[in-house]
């Protein structure tokens, strides 16, 4: 698939684009395995890479010189090198001068923070998860949610949602202050 088409696809139907971009995975796996990683880690890195690619592509100033696949591979490689550096705890800071890589590093950092937050959300109770999911992912109104989840009224559901958010937020604040 041509770059432009794939670029458009990633912006409109990301999952479809992701499935196409998955063909890069074997190469990434090879790279990770060759650099003391496991298959699981390869899969994780690749999924991270896809997300970073997605975000990068959706940045306004984004411009692509090579192929999207090549770019994805580059990102994954970069992510894995980053991971290794982290593992080895040797902050060698081999920061290259490439604007792109500095940029990528920021994205990776942000991504890692988000992962922590996701962990926090994942550890919320099922009820919390469901209410947040329906609101944020399914874009259901609070009154619909109240009905679906058998809350007395919209207000109770709302309060419940904010309680859940509060719990999560406090945990985020905790790690932010660490």
């Amino acid at each position: 698939m041509k770059n432009e088409a794939l670029l458009k696809l990633i912006q409109t139907k990301p999952e479809k684009a992701f499935s196409k971009l998955y063909k890069v995975f074997p190469d990434v796996k090879k790279y990770v395995l060759a650099n003391s990683g496991s298959k699981m880690e390869a899969e994780d890195i690749f999924q991270d890479g896809l997300i970073i690619l997605y975000k990068k592509v959706n940045q306004k100033e984004f411009q692509l010189s090579g192929s999207l696949e090549g770019f994805l591979y580059h990102i994954c490689k970069f992510c894995w090198n980053n991971e290794i550096r982290k593992k080895e705890k040797e902050h060698k800071l081999e920061k290259s001068d490439f604007e792109l890589e500095v940029d990528l590093e920021e994205l990776i950092q942000k991504e890692n923070q988000l992962k922590q937050v996701e962990n926090i959300l994942d550890k919320l109770g099922e009820k919390c998860k469901e209410i947040i999911r329906l609101f944020y992912h399914k874009a259901m109104s609070m009154s619909q949610i109240a009905k679906k989840l058998d809350y007395r009224n919209e207000k109770t559901a709302k309060t419940q949602k904010y309680k859940c958010l509060e719990r999560a937020r406090n945990k985020v604040l905790e790690i932010n202050n660490l």
């Binding site: 990301p14 479809k16 992701f18 998955y22």
Partner: peptide
């Protein structure tokens, strides 16, 4: 992404 993977 997971969906992309499943489809792949």
């Amino acid at each position: 992404v997971k969906k992309g993977r499943t489809q792949y």
